[in-house]
Simulated scan of single mutants.
Amino acid sequence: MTLQHFKSVIVPLDGSENALRALDYAAALAKANGMALHLLHVSPPTPTELMKAMGYSQRLRRLADASMGDFVELRQEAGEQVLAAARERLPADMAPVEAIRSGDPAHAILEYLESQDDAVIVMGRRGLSHFRELLMGSVSEKVLHLATCPVTILR
């Protein structure tokens, strides 16, 4: 299958240099092939979301919600800053689709992929230490192994 069969390029962005290099590559790829460019930022889950995933009781999660304050607003603002920095690197004639999601980055990227028809993913490799990667796993590795589309990972 050639790139002619794909309609869009999804670029997950975390603000890192590797992600910005992936953005440059993805923008050129999208422009050369007449594809839409999707900028995706995945924000970390809230403490309440983490507590739910870990099986904490609803009572404890409500207490955490009450003390969370402006976390969600700050998380949204941080995501918008990452997307704004990405937009600045793009040619003036490119109008990307932008999305901010929250949660586990690999799962959020894959869920976003499911909402798109005929997409490819271009992403940077964050470059975790070998020890941390053994413990946590790599987002790019998870996406590479679980995605149902071509994935390009740039360093």
Rank of each mutant, 00 (worst) to 15 (best):
H41Y: 15
L144G: 14
M136H: 01
S138F: 01
A108L: 06
I121L: 01
M54P: 02
A85Y: 07
H5L: 13
L128M: 07
E49W: 10
H107S: 12
M136G: 01
R125N: 05
I10P: 02
M68A: 08
A26D: 08
R126T: 00
A78W: 12
S67Y: 13
Y112H: 13
K52E: 13
D104P: 12
T48W: 11
E111I: 00
E17P: 07
K31I: 14
E133A: 02
L110V: 09
Q76V: 12
A99P: 10
D117V: 12
G127Q: 00
A147W: 00
I153T: 09
Y56H: 13
A147L: 02
A147T: 07
R126W: 07
G34A: 11
S102W: 08
M51Q: 13
A78F: 06
P96Y: 03
L23W: 10
V122T: 04
L23T: 09
F6K: 13
M94E: 13
D118Q: 14
D14E: 04
G34N: 15
G103F: 05
L3N: 11
L74Y: 07
V151G: 06
L13N: 00
M1H: 11
A106F: 06
A27G: 14
P96E: 08
L63D: 14
Q4H: 15
V143R: 03
G103Q: 07
H5P: 10
